[in-house]
Design a protein around this nucleic acid. Sequence first.
DNA 1: AAAGATTGACCGTTCAATCTTG
DNA 2: CAAGATTGAACGGTCAATCTTT
Lengths: 166, 166
Amino acid sequence: MSSSATELDALLHAGGDRITAYGMLLEAQAALASVVSDELERTSGLPHAWLEVLVRLSRSPERRLRMSELAGQVLFSTSGLTRLIDRMETAGLVGREACPNDRRGAFAVITPAGEDALRHALPRHLESLDRHLLHPIGEDDLAVMTEILERLRDAARRSTATHEVP
Amino acid sequence: MSSSATELDALLHAGGDRITAYGMLLEAQAALASVVSDELERTSGLPHAWLEVLVRLSRSPERRLRMSELAGQVLFSTSGLTRLIDRMETAGLVGREACPNDRRGAFAVITPAGEDALRHALPRHLESLDRHLLHPIGEDDLAVMTEILERLRDAARRSTATHEVP
DNA sequence: AAAGATTGACCGTTCAATCTTG
DNA sequence: CAAGATTGAACGGTCAATCTTT
């Protein structure tokens, strides 16, 4: 009898704090994203990814961004972004423009309808974040959490960049 | 001209802290889950959801759980769990048992092969969490973060439970 | 040859419908 | 008729292959 049930039990109860912390990260993100996304969909008819795209485009100098740049910002694969822009284009919220310098490239551009949608959705989204994110924990803990999460994110990104074996 | 570009700009820059906090939660979760999942897949050939199922089953008194109970624990829809157990069953890691009391019900049971897989994967997973979660921020901040996230999760769950309109 | 964008094939998940049992 | 589990259809995403341009 090599590894018995008792050994496994020991493993299951050891390091409970890390498991708990990781589980909490997953659960909190899932619960919060679920309620915030639902509310955004309900009040503005926009999936969260769409709002993200509209915000990025609207923030950028010329109100437009290269496809691959935008993909990087919203953490999508380039093919995923192609399809996302397809859907938003048929909805009339964004358009495509050819890039004059580099004829391979394409811009995604926000349309007037896209700006209208953003003007409608953004205040509601901010209010939603107030209710579900700021209010439950207060602004001090919000800042603390943000800073910790930032270190966590950066460390994770560093190790993916490092361990990459193409 | 009612709502001009300046108004939108104001909205975009107001409440940046909430947007940042929310973005960081999404980004940290995504970055960490990505690296941890990849590592788990690499070292043990197990998707994270599979490990989750194996852990839950292995923890439970009879090493088995009702399908719907398990679905609740791993935050899957019941249909999603049916298909997950399908895949794990063809991989030989779990099985199904009929419920004697209630003939509608079914149990998911962990198999000896499933326990072997768990014994192999769990230490590696714990070590991975040490490296990517505990080490980058330290145990004090880990505890702080966990506690804040727990409040956030509970608040979000409360408001979904409340706002439900069947 | 490499980079940017798109397309095709596929995979995992959910929602709605279904079947069986309580 | 309600509850537990499964099935069919659809959706949204990725990876690998492709096409055009550099």
